[in-house]
Design a protein around this nucleic acid. Structure first.
Lengths: 225, 225
DNA sequence: ACCTGAACACCGTTCAAGT
DNA sequence: ACCTGAACACCGTTCAAGT
């Protein structure tokens, strides 16, 4: 009943998968703004309209590209023996994926109902169950971790401009720290104080500290011992 | 030295503040996609180019509009006696602001270095200090809460399409729950299970549960007793 | 069934020209 | 100093026409 691979014209025929791969390549190399259907068509040596035969629209294409990266990241973060360690590995996997592909962070923060987000929730949720969190609290526990991960995703996705101009994250942080240090001390005492810590801090460690706060809180608030 | 109010032509002259107010009005009424400089100019009975005399660009305008809403929300969430309650009130203030203005959620999740985000961090940070968290841990504690709030901001910002079509959040959740319930049980056991809870749950309560997890974790992991 | 590429209906932003 | 509005350089998406 299917005509799937009966009428292939050439080996490199357009495919949803090939389009997604080309999109990832453009996103990684030139940033989110560089992904246009015209650039994509040029990259694949085809017309811009041809792409619409294989992908629904740009939003879907971005979601598919993001899902591909996230799926690989979660797959690599193989399950650890202890559920809490599994959650840490999983979260760090997403973190590292965003680090390598900043546009993934932006996309994850943008659409909560895309499949990549569901993947993360599923991975976290199963481990929350394994932690022994009672069923009524599992939803709140898993989504709290998810929210934290997505929140960081948005924060860590460096603005495209900065990335393109070759400004790395350290320079961005240095710049922000300098601005924060000049804030009015009466109005912004806390931010002024932590400005000093900003340029020297480790994003990964900070991320893990947040995960550990939530894990400790989940254990304390939901697991009766 | 200043010529500020010497050459005003008419009472309703263009002003950054007036432009921001008009932008908020459009964003609230017709959603994020409806905010264009052409629509804004028409709304203010001026030319689109005139706006650029008062605002730098669209990104800045959105940041200013967001800051206005967030500032009001934080101001209303007057400081509570107990630092933990102050943090809850503050977080709920932001939550309710996003509930009333979904575009604020999208914008908060989009740019971590905008002033509105700094405002939230400052508010949270001061209360973290008041909780007695030792100085080296204050940064991680405050940013963990911030990440969680921003993560939820992105998740809660309903897609503009849905909002415009008059589909409310309950209907969106119902729809997602139905999709989740049809997922493969072997591959998505957790999401399938929580699908049933999705349509009946209270976003606000879920949000507060997350905040409480983090607060409990902060107390346990950083405060020696 | 799949591809082409011009055309449509928009954008944000700039800028010469006005008052 | 501030405003006008046409023009520029783009977009995503559609669609008649091809193979």
């Amino acid at each position: 009943m299917t005509t799937e691979n009966r009428t292939r014209r050439r080996a490199d025929a357009l495919t949803q998968q090939r389009i997604v791969e080309a999109a990832i390549k453009i996103l990684d190399q030139d940033g989110e703004d560089a992904l246009t259907f015209r650039a994509l068509a040029a990259h694949l040596a085809t017309g811009s309209g041809a792409l619409y035969w294989h992908v629904a629209d740009k939003q879907t294409l971005l979601a598919q590209a993001t899902d591909q990266i996230v799926a690989a990241a979660l797959h690599e973060a193989a399950t650890r023996p202890q559920p809490q360690n599994a959650i840490r590995a999983l979260a760090l996997g997403v973190f590292d994926a965003i680090d390598a592909h900043p546009w993934v962070g932006a996309q994850l923060a943008r659409d909560p109902w895309q499949y990549a987000v569901l993947r993360i929730l599923e991975g976290v949720g199963v481990q929350v169950q394994a932690m022994g969190v009672p069923e009524p609290a599992q939803f709140n526990a898993a989504t709290a971790i998810l929210s934290f991960i997505l929140g960081l995703a948005g924060q860590y996705a460096t603005r495209p401009q900065a990335a393109l101009e070759g400004v790395d994250r350290a320079a961005v942080l240095e710049n922000v720290a300098a601005k924060w240090a000049q804030l009015d001390a009466a109005q912004h005492p806390f931010v002024r104080q932590v400005a000093a810590m900003l340029s020297g801090h480790d994003d990964r460690e900070q991320f893990l500290a947040g995960i550990d706060f939530i894990l400790a809180g989940i254990v304390q608030n939901t697991i009766v011992s």
